[in-house]
Each structure stands twice: as structure tokens, then as C-alpha cells.
């Protein structure tokens, strides 16, 4: 079966908790890479720190497990060093939007050809369930025992505002849709951003929903809707899924290479 071909199987079973959505996202990403027919030697996966960031260790690509929040900064160096490589950056919500928020908006602004995947489970899992910038108001965490009062980021709006030229959102319930978005995002020439809503049964679920991983997944079916669906008008609370932005814009690494060529002609 195709998925196993891309795994460093000796590290399995992976370390994520039972029912954690991160494995589902990893599987969809592998299927997208398989569908695109990318050569393993042409893929670099760069991550930061957190549950999400353990993904590269399981993948048989060039893998770079970096510092908390800094994956996109490392990835920028990789992409500039060898622009022909496909650079994919899986991140967690805290990793991407708290400690790494600055790098996220600037990678988006530059429109550098990197695929950023934010696995948003609304919590810091690796450290044991603290609030993140995407923890909803009133949700409980170990650092918000009485309920969170910090307003949450809408990561799609954040990426759009920062100038990402491809912005999409899916969930772990919508495996095929997620896979299709990864395919489009990796194919996109420019900075692509995919938010995947995912479940953390251990730390978010236990404190807030008290339900099984399956029930947490199923919730994504009822709390989200496709972009443009009439359901959104009936219930404005619904979170939209789909491709929000897909624009052609000058890509950073290639325009730098163009500049080099022009400078060399002038000499």
C-alpha cells in the first residue's frame, strides 16, 4: 500500500495519543504527495516543536525538526538554498501562531513557495494542555482553569491578512477534502497555508468535551460547512471549509533568482 512506502516504519507505532488527529493529517499528506508523484529526494519536511512537529521523524523525506515556532524561518533558508525542492512545514496552532506568529506572517508576505500546514487542535498538547492562541473563549485549559478569556485567532483570516496567496481550511473528518487541499497547496507557486481542524482527545477533549475521539471528529461535520453553503446564512457560527484564496503572485525565491540573472547580464 502506498502510504507505508513513505514511512520510516521502524518508529511505529507513532507517539501520538490514541485518537489524535495528527496521524490522520500525516496520512492525508502522504496520499497527497503520492498523488502528486513527488520524488522522495525532492521533498523536505520542516517542523518546529510540539506534538505536530514530531511528524517529520516518521516520514521518509529530508526532514528537519527545529525549534519551537521557527520552522518557517528554517524552511525559508532551505527554500532559498535549493528552490527546486518542495518544502512542506507542518506546525501546531501554538507553534505557528503564538511563538511562530511573526515568521508565519512574514513567510506569507514574501510569498515564498512553502506549504504551511497548521494542525489546529486548540491546545498545547506536548506540554499538557495549556491555552493556545486558538483556544476558544470559555474553553478550559490548565492555564485557563476557569475558562479562557483570550479571544482566539482565526488562522485563515490571519494568513489572508498577511498576504498568503493560497489559503484553505479542512478538518480531520474530511479526509479526502484535506488531501485535495494538500495537493492544491503543494502545487501552488507561492506561500500556501492550510489549516486543518483536528482533535486532541487527551488534553482538549477531556477538559472540554468529555467525548470520544470519534465524537470530536464528528463535531467537525456539524460545526463546519463548505464555503458558499447556504447553511452559513442560517447559522453564522459555522466555520467555513474550502479554498479561501488561490492567487497568482510573484514568488519570492524565483524572483530572487531572476534578479541574480539580471545582475549577471549587466556585468
Amino acid at each position: 500500500m502506498p502510504v507505508k512506502r513513505y514511512l520510516r516504519q521502524r518508529f511505529f507505532p507513532q507517539l501520538w495519543c490514541a485518537g489524535c488527529g495528527h496521524g490522520q493529517i500525516m496520512a492525508s499528506l502522504i496520499r497527497a504527495i503520492e498523488e502528486l508523484g513527488l520524488q522522495k529526494n525532492n521533498v523536505v519536511v520542516v517542523s518546529g516543536i510540539g506534538c505536530s512537529s514530531r511528524m517529520p521523524g516518521y516520514l521518509d523525506f529530508h526532514t528537519l525538526h527545529t525549534l519551537h515556532g521557527r520552522a518557517l524561518a528554517f524552511a525559508t533558508g532551505v527554500k532559498m538554498g535549493r528552490p527546486e525542492l518542495n518544502v512542506i512545514v507542518p506546525m501546531g496552532d501554538g507553534d505557528a501562531s503564538a511563538i511562530g506568529g511573526n515568521h508565519l506572517i512574514h513567510a506569507a508576505r514574501r510569498n515564498i513557495n512553502i506549504t504551511a500546514i497548521v494542525m489546529n487542535n486548540n491546545i498545547y498538547g506536548m506540554t499538557g494542555g495549556q491555552s493556545s492562541p486558538t483556544t476558544p473563549v470559555a474553553a478550559k485549559s490548565t492555564t485557563a482553569p476557569l475558562g479562557n478569556i483570550d479571544p482566539a485567532f482565526d488562522l485563515v483570516e490571519l494568513a489572508k491578512g498577511a498576504g498568503a496567496s493560497f489559503v484553505a481550511r479542512s478538518t480531520t473528518y474530511h479526509s479526502k477534502e484535506m488531501q485535495n487541499m494538500f495537493v492544491k497547496a503543494i502545487n501552488h507557486k507561492g506561500f500556501s497555508f492550510v489549516e486543518v481542524l483536528t482533535q486532541c482527545p487527551t488534553y482538549y477533549g477531556r477538559k472540554n468535551e468529555g467525548v470520544s475521539p470519534t465524537e470530536m471528529m464528528k463535531k467537525f461535520a456539524t460545526t463546519t460547512t463548505s464555503i458558499g453553503s447556504p447553511k452559513k446564512k442560517e447559522n453564522p457560527e459555522l466555520i467555513e471549509r474550502g479554498v479561501f484564496v488561490d492567487q497568482e503572485r510573484t514568488e519570492y525565491a524565483s524572483s530572487y533568482c531572476e534578479m541574480i540573472n539580471q545582475m549577471r547580464k549587466q556585468k
Binding site: 514511512l7 507505532p13 490522520q24 496520512a27 492525508s28
Partner: peptide, 15 residues
């Protein structure tokens, strides 16, 4: 194939 698609542990294969 939904089980294979959704297994977080990549433990299921249709073959």
C-alpha cells in the same frame, strides 16, 4: 476504505 483513510495510526490497509 473510510477506515483506512481515517485511521490515525496508519494501521489499516485495504489490500
Amino acid at each position: 476504505g473510510l477506515c483506512e483513510l481515517r485511521c490515525p495510526d496508519l494501521a489499516i490497509t485495504l489490500q
